[in-house]
Write a protein that binds this DNA or RNA. Structure first.
Lengths: 202, 202
DNA sequence: GACAGTCTGGCAGCGACTGCCAACCATGCT
DNA sequence: AGCATGGTTGGCAGTCGCTGCCAGACTGTC
């Protein structure tokens, strides 16, 4: 259940945890390979489990959902995002604070290639896109109180402005990443994000 | 299944078509009732089919997807939207044109109550939210060329600004409708939308 | 009344996902 | 070393959304 994934270097904890982590990596690698090879929808859980050498039941214990096999740690995304935004000084504006959060998330990507590969899958697969948008919406919900506090709007559901600012920031991130993928990973996502915001806010 | 052997009154279309339409309405009404009564995820296709008096197979022939039982004509939404935007005079700005399109869609709702009921289900059910966002993304893709033409940006994937403006407009609509639902349908969605845009671009 | 074209329901099956249960095995205690 | 413990695993059955297939019932036409 809960795992201190602090196995950065050495300190291999118990043998169990090491085995767990190994299996987890194996499953993740197999899934990503098959997804890029033959597409997300065309890859079945049974196939991933077979090629990774585990049972379907175990696979579902590691990753509760087929989607989780791609995103890996989307939950950590949300964590890093809200943390980064929350840690911004109080005198920083909303837009700047959100920018800082988004920038913090970008650092989490392992490599440009892997990020590009994942984004490409995400943008080209309807079911994945849907799931991702849904998760992103939950991040927005988590961020909402922070944003409203920074804007001075009382929120409580009556004032739409906090939600609007938040949704716009993510919308720009969306546009930026889609353009980034369309350009085969050329340029920097944050630059594109800035360009998007500038286009929107004049 | 059973049918009124008489139906003497009026015969505008063939009996087939009439039966079909009747069954369709019956299914739709049953589905909406069960969804609001016990929730979307807790309602099975088998239950809807049983209470509507048709087989599952037939139900799936009428509505290809469980989601289709709620939205009904989401496709028409997109149609009206793109038509309205496209029909705006050439000298109208992007933001204004998009606003006109969104306003055109609002007219399609049957009644305030029904719209509120549907929106409530939509915003409270994760799977539905995901599907809706996905479909909305497709609308954005349809709208993109129109927006880029109006902005003078030669899209082709290289320029993110068209996508950014588009996504922002929808983001504001999202924030507006969520606030509308949170306030139990009080006020006008378009007013909230304007407020959102002002907060973003102000 | 016979024929053709639809529509329907039932059945089997796929894929994602879950609950249950028996077998397993690293770990800790004696 | 021996043994109990508790987390881990895999298989089996089952649910739910959804599809292909096939036989039978129905409507409309000649």
């Amino acid at each position: 259940m809960k795992q201190e994934a602090k196995t950065a270097a050495g300190a291999p904890a118990t043998l169990w945890d090491r085995t767990r982590q190994l299996a987890s990596q194996e499953i993740l690698a197999t899934a990503l390979r098959l997804f890029t090879e033959q597409g997300y929808d065309e890859t079945t859980i049974a196939q991933i489990a077979r090629e990774a050498g585990v049972s379907q039941r175990t696979l579902f214990r590691y990753f509760g959902t087929k989607e989780d096999l791609l995103g890996g740690d989307q939950d950590r995304f949300g964590q890093v995002l809200t943390d980064a935004v929350g840690e911004q000084p109080a005198d920083v504006g909303v837009w700047e604070a959100l920018r800082a959060g988004i920038a913090a998330v970008q650092v989490l990507h392992d490599s440009r290639e892997q990020a590009l590969e994942r984004f490409r899958l995400l943008h080209n697969t309807a079911s994945l896109r849907a799931g991702w948008l849904e998760k992103r919406l939950r991040f927005q919900e988590d961020l909402l109180p922070l944003v409203e506090a920074r804007m001075g709007t009382a929120g409580g559901g009556a004032d739409p402005r906090g939600r609007a600012v938040l949704a716009t920031a993510f919308a720009c991130l969306d546009a930026a990443s889609m353009t980034w993928v369309a350009n085969d990973g050329k340029g920097d996502i944050m630059d594109l994000y800035d360009e998007c915001l500038a286009a929107v806010r004049g």
